[in-house]
Design a protein around this nucleic acid. Sequence first.
DNA 1: TTGAAGCTGTCAAATTCGTTACAGTGGCGG
DNA 2: CCGCCACTGTAACGAATTTGACAGCTTCAA
Lengths: 289, 289
Amino acid sequence: MRAQQRSTTVAERLRLKAAELTAAERKLMTALFANYPMAGLVSITEFAREAAVSTPSVLRLAKKLGFAGFPSFQEALRAELSAQLQNPIAKHDRWSADAPDTHILNRFAQAAMENLSGSLKLVDHRAFDAIVALLADRKRHIHLGGGRITCAVASYLATHLQMARPHVSLIPTTPSFWPQYLLDIGKGDVIVLFDIRRYDARMPDFAASARERGARIVLITDQWISPLARLAVHTLPLRIEAPSSWDSNIVPLFVAEALVSAVINASWPETQARIQELETLSDIGRRAR
Amino acid sequence: MRAQQRSTTVAERLRLKAAELTAAERKLMTALFANYPMAGLVSITEFAREAAVSTPSVLRLAKKLGFAGFPSFQEALRAELSAQLQNPIAKHDRWSADAPDTHILNRFAQAAMENLSGSLKLVDHRAFDAIVALLADRKRHIHLGGGRITCAVASYLATHLQMARPHVSLIPTTPSFWPQYLLDIGKGDVIVLFDIRRYDARMPDFAASARERGARIVLITDQWISPLARLAVHTLPLRIEAPSSWDSNIVPLFVAEALVSAVINASWPETQARIQELETLSDIGRRAR
DNA sequence: TTGAAGCTGTCAAATTCGTTACAGTGGCGG
DNA sequence: CCGCCACTGTAACGAATTTGACAGCTTCAA
């Protein structure tokens, strides 16, 4: 074991080789990182079972990383863990998520987690469920829109909802296209609007017109709440602060994904049929190329 | 191991029994405390040699402490160390422990957090920094692309990078548009591609062509790693699992935001000037309406 | 001084572990 | 469609570990 390691940790070596790992080896990597490095400090049999691969696969990974055998691999893990435990300074690095002043990735992750947990407290579950009910109702048409930045999130939600149900359309960000989209908005339709800080100045006009035509407006906004809220039937306020010049849209995207998942669950039989049909059509598309 | 102890650690039990330990057992205790608990996580032979006693003495100590045998004793040590290691990270789970498996919002948030912390372990900080350096280099042109789903993330990144620096373009998802975009890709350009599971079948062609023209490819993918990796100079593997029919793009978006923030920091003076200019132009746009 | 009790190490049996060889499987290119 | 190659798991072997039995040693008291 002393043959090959310089100062590189097993984790680093894994990352370096990540691209050339096979499926079984990647399973092992995931299992190891899930509880690093303790997961690797058990017998080869147990480690293999934990990752749901065979014992020789573990051995192959160890050799690929440059170790003589499994014991060498394990000793390397032990050595680095031992070093970390004895060195109180390095202790902080281990919990990188807690070290707020190290790498920007960690600072950002910290902010993202805080935004997420903060948003969960802000959001009313009943409002969320009510929105899901609206979006899962196949008799309604759904229209999605966002501002200059949030349009990417709206588009993401549109793509996923389109796979789950019919009659989903994305409203372009450019106001000059709005009239022709307003034409197709009718009574009982649902409009989901994303509007966060630096609220779009034109969107209230659009929302007001849509409302006059009988549409129900769902608003996803930040904790300071867009002025659109007075036009909306449901409003989800989210935390979006980031250590950056711009706000973070991670939580809005999170809400979008959660909505999709909930909508799919709410109408599973129809959705399943639709997704299967979609798969078939995709195959055709692929063959036709 | 599960037989006797509840929450007592091995160290505590040793201290309790300290008075009734024999000479050999005390040697073992000293050796264990000298490097607790790592000293006990080796084979019984090695542990005995370290403490200069015989192997059966180790076994006798383990039994005296109430363990079935040496493996039980060792597993107890592993378990407490593992708990200790995970604790600071697991503290994020506390909020979700309020309602662990009830509402889909909580389940999704749980998954998002796990993906985030898992991704932080997978990602090599140096690779991230190298990518930032590439993106912050204003002499290079930047091109961004994604698949059917990830194009929303690519578009998000494009919008933000465009605010921070010149020469940023978004490659459309439709392959028929690619030739005209390839035309403008030259030596030293940077291509950032998002490619996660259900990897886009056409993207390798595009990437290969771009590479031939001298561009450097940066890949943001999932933990199973897109085949594009062999064409890329830097690859960021992320965890993207979600309790849903589709994968989660929260972490890719997180990376996009972190990249933007880091790029802005890396070239603050120029970026600041650019953003101010942008503000001025936005005002004009607003007045002109 | 002697015997007994308890502690410790040596040794060997049984089990588990780590490793190698080999065969089956699936994907890819011709 | 076929053959090749890479990957994965099964099975068997050898090595190491764990454990129990036994004998030597020390210590203490009679």
